[in-house]
Design a protein around this nucleic acid. Sequence first.
DNA 1: TATGAATGAGCTTTCATTCAT
DNA 2: AATGAATGAAAGCTCATTCAT
Lengths: 178, 178, 178, 178
Amino acid sequence: MNDSRTRILDAAEALFAETGYEATSTARIALAAEVPKGLLFHYFPQKLDVLLTLIDERTAIEEPPEEPLPPDPAGALRRLASRLPLRASPSMRRILFREADTHRTARERITALNRELVRRARRALELTLPGARGDAARLEVAAATFAAVLLYQENLFHLTGDRIDPDALADLITRALM
Amino acid sequence: MNDSRTRILDAAEALFAETGYEATSTARIALAAEVPKGLLFHYFPQKLDVLLTLIDERTAIEEPPEEPLPPDPAGALRRLASRLPLRASPSMRRILFREADTHRTARERITALNRELVRRARRALELTLPGARGDAARLEVAAATFAAVLLYQENLFHLTGDRIDPDALADLITRALM
Amino acid sequence: MNDSRTRILDAAEALFAETGYEATSTARIALAAEVPKGLLFHYFPQKLDVLLTLIDERTAIEEPPEEPLPPDPAGALRRLASRLPLRASPSMRRILFREADTHRTARERITALNRELVRRARRALELTLPGARGDAARLEVAAATFAAVLLYQENLFHLTGDRIDPDALADLITRALM
Amino acid sequence: MNDSRTRILDAAEALFAETGYEATSTARIALAAEVPKGLLFHYFPQKLDVLLTLIDERTAIEEPPEEPLPPDPAGALRRLASRLPLRASPSMRRILFREADTHRTARERITALNRELVRRARRALELTLPGARGDAARLEVAAATFAAVLLYQENLFHLTGDRIDPDALADLITRALM
DNA sequence: TATGAATGAGCTTTCATTCAT
DNA sequence: AATGAATGAAAGCTCATTCAT
């Protein structure tokens, strides 16, 4: 139901990801969505509302899952690395990172994502390396580093082309704490 | 001499950094540079040329310095972290990262920066940790991780607000290799 | 209905005829048509489309009529001369000839007009001068000459101011073939 | 001597012929002439002066030659047809005809050319067909027709592509008067 | 909801022309 | 005579947005 609205958002998602928000005209969105130009403004009074709606409805920071973590630190980090706690299509991820510079809403999502990622990494390390708890500061740095690399990959990998193997990363971080 | 051209580039640099390339009109650039609109196109036939010229003339990947590295790995990494091998103002850095998604020239600079950064980190670790040379793969991951965090900071720090202490990072990486 | 589009074409037709395509600005067309500047580009994405549409919609090469020709050659040519097989206003005719040099579409129309004109003249002479059929080459030259003078008048008369009387022309051509 | 001025005129001649006066910018002329933009305006205060100078200096209507005409009418016309009494390069001829619609100076040259052409044709026919002198009106039409076809060829031949053989034309006109 | 014509501000770019050197 | 930076009006065109139907 409400086919048009969805088609508009689909088209905008694809175009924003490819060309960027500013360089995408509402006319092009309507054309790609096969919807009359006027209808776009029926659902989204301003062009900006299309972007905000996309971020609002098509990106979400996930809660940590219920399943128990693997007992070893490398395994725990590896599982974390296997999937960012961000429910969003590849297109939406690109949009989120690209527009974060200029749009608060996108920036807030990324901040939340970063925070959640660090929190999970910290918790995973705390649980699997009880001995390391003594040095809380070092553990924090390890968690932040882990999160930074994952977000770096998400954001800049398609630019630099070099990818860090998640397993090797998990292994590296673990070693630093033992 | 050639005051106007410089003023145009200065104005563009500031505005592109603040608002992004697409959202900055040539009229605003000319106004900020206090030159007539037409003059901008005398020096830069297309708006895009302003951006490309900025990247070309105001960003450069530095060659590694001559000075000897500190003998300890943490110290060597720390010195590396203290300054990216990128000769560019803070504004130009923002522009470089923001436009990398859509402009090949910017993307190539970042790729080169990443490569140079990894190369230096690798070399620093090889020289200061001769024993680690045995495990080349792990050393490579360590170098890449180090570079990733530095670029992540450069790119996303002003978004997430969390900063990883470079000294602690250097320490962490070093530990993982011992 | 669709008043604006027609008004734009009307205004363009008048202005192109008077000043030429290149020297007529879209702003002047919109002003003369009493429509906002933007609307012109709603109907015609490029300025050139206005010209091409005019040529396409407002000039047409006519098919020969059904009515029987007068039995005598001079009469037959005279009727031909009385009306070019070109359905187009005087303004459109001027535009067609003036822009033929630089626009293929206009050139093609004139070529078609020339061909049709020669074809009709040849046929008129063949039918009314059965005896002349023997010298096909001379008849062809006569037809081509007749067509050339008519198109010359159309194109250059308002320049030179001298007009050849069509009846006298028909008479002259006929005499040459007897 | 005065190389620059000549180079500007040469470049303008080529460009006006190819693209038309309006569509040729002074910058393009200067570029093609390999002359600084400012210099053009030193020699020609206005762009229009370039065109007027070209017409003034590089087109001229020729006086009739001294040599005696061939004694037969077809031969006399044939010689006339072999060369228009217009001293001008092919480029200048195109410019003359193309700009005649909008520039009085060009129009006046063509009018003069037409008049001279008719005058010569009339005189040729009078001299070689003394018997025809009786019907002055018919002779006038013949001369005008002859001139019209020659100018038509000059102006529209490269458009329609069909060329009337001058010998056959001379023959046709002659026959009509006998 | 749906439609696409209408609007006008603003965009990038072009241009003829000026002028200090 | 030579030069190219400077000027600003105006060009073609794009755009988000409105609105009558």
